[in-house]
Every structure is written in structure tokens, then in C-alpha cells.
Design a protein around this nucleic acid. Structure first.
Lengths: 259, 259
DNA sequence: CACGTGTTGTTGTTGTTATAACAACATTTA
DNA sequence: TAAATGTTGTTATAACAACAACAACACGTG
């Protein structure tokens, strides 16, 4: 497999998400393989129909990704990949900045006289969003945070945050293991997996993810941590909170028992 | 004009270049305007056909831009613009990094047994590319650099570079004005525009851009600096270099004359 | 509890646009 | 004039946009 063909589908996808079409990507790649080329040579290298090469070259030129020689026939050369990607990214970053600004304006003016989201149970998709939400609710903690979680949930960032919040709120954690003995002001209970009594078997599954209860008012239930399609539930619903609060107490009572 | 409609076309374009479709953008924007909404409410806010809202919401969910409530009917909420844009950008940046890597591999293995580009005259489009090329050839200077240029060509970066290169190469500059008297090892001649004799009238146009000759071997001719569609010619062709060298000498001889 | 009504969610069809692919022709160079 | 270059216009194709029709469901009422 040639180096070109090995990742060719992938690299074309990448270039598409940087704003090129398939042909633009193919022509740009073709030009990278040589010092310079005429339209016909590009056609041969890239397999793009010869007649299509000309408009594509025009577009690449408008996007500032190639240089053109003043000769007949015209010769074309690609900017280096570093330069080319930088040029494409700078366009996108400009768009991103604009989007952020305009969208923020819209977001600030959003209609707030809607029913609050308190009576709902929300799905949070993706491990990054879950971490974000977890950070959000811990940060907003008033007087207590209670966590049962797989160690991988309690990332260094979360742990740092917990240490900070511990200054003003009571924090209780149940987990399998705790890296570094220093628990600071945190109350940490460690329970190994296999010790779990049979009647709490379904808890194992929960422990693959975790539960975080803040101020007995908000709950984040993390279901599985298969990095890709992790899902969490978030709610401020009274019944939901009460249910998981009881669930939490059940586990903690058992965790607190001396081994 | 409402804040939403004022930049709505623009923001949709921005979101498209971040990888969303028109409908995805419209639905995301609609969700930013409220705390949460059902599919039907989204349809009303966004004017996207109700039947199209559902698949679009699926796509937005896959792209991790919205949360979904567990209720009937389902309620949806947008992640904040900052989070949303960050998520889209991180996808693109990952693609950019991959593209850079794969393309660099292709570029390194390029077929080099091609005719060199020495006999050609190259067009360089865009002010950034011109600055880049100028930096490149000055950096590679062996024994001399000769420049006639409009002051705006000689940016702080270029000036810094020239100071560094002056250690090993003779540098001569003709321009209209020179910020800060410190010329270091550079030989700078300053000539105001209006003094120009009538027979050199066409030089004015050239002075709107500039000429840079390095080692009497490479020439960059900058034509106009209208920030958008600035074009430069670059060549190592003997005839081209000789022509502009003579041209250069003509102007410099006149510039050296005491006023 | 059956029933009608209105809403939610799904499916399939059609129109539209941008890209892809090609054929035919005009133009230049050797 | 033969070969290659450059241009133009037409036809596919695929993704997206827009809509119509229907099944599933919740809910209030007789």
C-alpha cells in the first residue's frame, strides 16, 4: 500500500471538513507529490478528469493554497501542508469566533420566561459533556456533595475541584481506589468491587459509572464509561433525587461498615 | 432588525464551515433562544419543517451539541455557544492535525526528479503569502538584499528579520519613510513620492508595492497592496532578474542623488 | 371504557443545489 | 496539422431541503 493510498480516504475526509471538496483535495494532494505540474500532469497524478482540473485549480487559487507560474502551459505548485492547513484553519477559526460572538448574543437574550428545566430528566451524551456537567454542579455546590463513582470518573481535575469546594461544603466519596493517600478535607470510603454482597449485585453496574448528588437537590447519574457512548442522566426532580438519595444511602451504609 | 436576523445569514455560513447543515444551524440557533423546547416548538421557532426537525435533532445529538430530556414529548436544550463551538472546533482541529501529518508524509516523499522551478515566473496570491515568501527569500539571503518598497511592506517582522540578516549580508532599502531613526547596519534611502521626476512616473505604481532582489539571483515583485487581492511575481529566471535589477538600479541611482 | 381529537414521532416522495464526470469544441504551440 | 492546452456546456449523482401522509400515543369526554 502506498503512503498516499493508505490514508487517502481519511485525508480526503479531513480536508473536506477543512472546507475542500473531493476534487480540491485530490488536486492539492497531487500537487504535494511534485515540485510543480501543469493541468494535464495534475490530471494524470490525481485521476481527476482533465476538464475538471481547471475550475478546481481556480478554486484552490482563490483559497490561497497554490501558486501559479506565468508560463504556457501554466504550472502550478502547492503551498506546503503546514502553510496550507494553517490557511484553511485560520478561515475556520475566524468563522468560529464570529459564530461564538453572534450565538452568544442570541443566547444572552433567550426567552427566560419559560418553565424551568427542574421537572425534567436530562440525558447528557459523551464523556466530555458528562465531565463538564459534573464540574458545573460540583462548582455550584452550596453545602454538600455526595459521590459514588468509579475511580476513572474522579479525574485529577475533578479532584482538584473537590479539594477547592471542600472549603465550604461537606464532601463524601465512595470509590474503589484512591490514588495518593492525601484526602484533605474529603471523607473518602474505599470499597473493593468483589466484596459486594450478592443482594447489591446491580450496584456493580452503577459503580462502572457513578452517582453525584449535590445539596440533595441535583443528581447526575453516570451510566457506563465506554469512552465513546457514555450517557448520564441529570435531574433536579424531587422524586428522582429522592430515589437516588435512598439508593446512595444504601450503598454508603454498607461502605461505612468496617471490613 | 432583530439581533437574530441581522447576522443570521452570516452565522449560518459560519456554522456551515464548522460542519453543520443549514437546518442543523437553524435548529441549534432556535434552541439557544429558549431554555428548552419540544420538536414542535423548535419547528415554530426555527421555521424548519416539523418532519425535518427530528432527523436534524438526531444529528445534533450525534455531534454532541444538545441534551435531551427523558420526557414525553422529549425536550431538547442546546449546549452554550461557547461549549458548542468548542466541540465543533475540536473535531476540526483533530482533522487538521491528521491532515497535516498525512500530507506532510506525502510532501516529504514527493518526486524530486522534476525540472526545478528556476525557469519560471510564479504568481503569489494574497498579502499573507507574499509576506511569507518575502520572509523566505530574505532569510535565505547569502550576500545581499536590495529592496524598493512601500513602507507598509516593511512590517515590524520583516524589519526585525532584516536586522538579523544584516549581520552577514549587505542590505539596501529605498522607501518613502522610515519609522524610528535607528537603521542599524541597513543602508536606507528615503525618497518622498511627489519628488519623483516625471520620466519615472510609472515607478509610482511600482512603489505602491515593491521589489526585492536577493543575491542578484531571485526577485520578488509586489504589485499593489490592496490587502485582499495583492499579487506578487517571483522568479529566479536570469532574464527576469536582469530586467528588474536594471530597473532597481535606475531608481536607486535617482534615490541616491542628494535632494 | 370506548371514542374522538390533537399532538408526537416516523416514513417515503419530490424538489433543489452543489459537486462530480464527461463530451465536444476552440485555441495555442511546435 | 498534429498534439496538447484551455474552455464550455451537458448529464449524473448525492446530499440536503421541503413536504405529505400516516401510525402511535396521550388525554379529555360522553
Amino acid at each position: 500500500m502506498t503512503p498516499a493510498s493508505s490514508g487517502s480516504a481519511r485525508v480526503i475526509e479531513c480536508l473536506k471538513s477543512l472546507g475542500l471538496t473531493k476534487y480540491e483535495a485530490l488536486v492539492y494532494i497531487a500537487l504535494l507529490k511534485v515540485v510543480s505540474a501543469t493541468a494535464s500532469e495534475i490530471h494524470e497524478i490525481s485521476t481527476v478528469p482533465r476538464a475538471s482540473v481547471y475550475p478546481v485549480l481556480d478554486q484552490l487559487q482563490e483559497k490561497r493554497l497554490i501558486s501559479v507560474a506565468r508560463s504556457t502551459p501554466k504550472r502550478f505548485a502547492a503551498l506546503s501542508p503546514e502553510e496550507g492547513v494553517a490557511i484553511m484553519m485560520s478561515r475556520i477559526e475566524r468563522d468560529a469566533a464570529d459564530a461564538r460572538e453572534i450565538l452568544s448574543a442570541i443566547h444572552r437574550e433567550r426567552i427566560s420566561h419559560e418553565q424551568s428545566s427542574e421537572e425534567l430528566i436530562w440525558n447528557v451524551y459523551g464523556i466530555e459533556n458528562i465531565q463538564r456537567k459534573l464540574t458545573e454542579i460540583i462548582t455550584a455546590a452550596g453545602h454538600d456533595v455526595r459521590i459514588i463513582a468509579h475511580p476513572q470518573i474522579i479525574s485529577p481535575e475533578i479532584r482538584e475541584l473537590l479539594d477547592a469546594v471542600a472549603e465550604r461544603a461537606d464532601i463524601e466519596i465512595v470509590t474503589h481506589q484512591w490514588e495518593g493517600g492525601n484526602k484533605g478535607k474529603l471523607r473518602v470510603y474505599i470499597k473493593k468491587h468483589p466484596e459486594m454482597p450478592r443482594e447489591l449485585d446491580h450496584v456493580k453496574d452503577m459503580m462502572a459509572g457513578g452517582i453525584c448528588i449535590v445539596d440533595n437537590r441535583r443528581v447526575l447519574v453516570i451510566l457506563g464509561t465506554g469512552n465513546e457512548d457514555a450517557v448520564a442522566l441529570f435531574s433536579e426532580t424531587e422524586g428522582f433525587v429522592r430515589f437516588f438519595s435512598r439508593y446512595y444511602n444504601l450503598i454508603v451504609d454498607w461502605a461505612k461498615k468496617p471490613e
